[in-house]
């Protein structure tokens, strides 16, 4: 078990959006979050990544094992592909860029400025960053946005590889990536209305 969630509630803008979440993530396991837009998948991922505190419940796991990838890729347009990757490698204390470069087919783009990449290429670079971190648990928010079919296949392959090496992945995505994954639909966990903040409760 690398991550265990007990009775978790997450909130956005002071309102609880999801509650009563219970699940575990084991090495080699992929967990796919499903649910309509605005249902709180991003909020859940940000909470698990440690960017915001849970509204209730516990998250058991080492934050030092988590690598988080948001909607935005965090790329610097004036730096080259290689410089972007090398920076994150240094931040995470790793040095070998080649597996990430190979996995996402970035070899021919290495010296191009990230600002000159197409949307799909940027996304590939953003995902390559995950591999560079060397961390065990990947958390991905809509990873396949703006990827073409072959890139999606490449991405799915990388995830399979990661799982095979005892890594885990937590993905919020709508499309079927074609690897074995546990699916968690967050809709049933939508918070009830009684969960208004304490200040607003029945005082009027």
């Amino acid at each position: 078990m690398v991550l265990k969630v007990k009775d978790l509630a997450v909130s956005r803008g002071g309102l609880t959006v999801l509650e009563g979440l219970n699940f575990t993530l084991s090495p080699g396991q992929a967990l796919v979050l499903r649910g309509p837009n605005g249902s709180g998948k991003t909020t859940l991922l940000r909470t698990l990544a440690g960017l915001q505190p849970p509204a209730a419940g516990d998250i058991v796991g080492d934050p030092e094992t988590i690598a988080y990838a948001a909607h935005a890729d965090g790329l610097k347009p004036t730096l080259s592909v290689r410089e972007n990757l090398a920076f994150w490698a240094q931040v995470f204390g790793t040095s070998d860029l080649s597996p990430a470069i190979d996995a996402f087919n970035l070899g021919t783009l290495l010296d191009r400025a990230a600002g000159a990449l197409s949307a799909g290429q940027k996304r590939r670079l953003g995902l390559a960053r995950l591999k560079v971190t060397g961390r065990q648990v990947w958390m991905l928010d809509e990873p396949t946005v703006s990827l073409d079919t072959s890139s999606v296949e490449q991405f799915a392959h990388t995830i399979r590889d990661h799982l095979k090496n005892q890594g885990s992945a937590l993905l919020a995505t709508h499309i079927d990536l074609g690897f074995e994954a546990t699916v968690l639909d967050v809709s049933p966990y939508k918070a009830k209305l009684r969960d208004l903040p304490v200040l607003e409760e029945g005082l009027l």
């Binding site: 940000r46 960017l51 988590i66 988080y68 965090g74």
Partner: peptide
């Protein structure tokens, strides 16, 4: 560009 989120984690 999202770097701050990534740096914070």
């Amino acid at each position: 560009d999202g770097s701050l989120d990534l740096l914070a984690t």
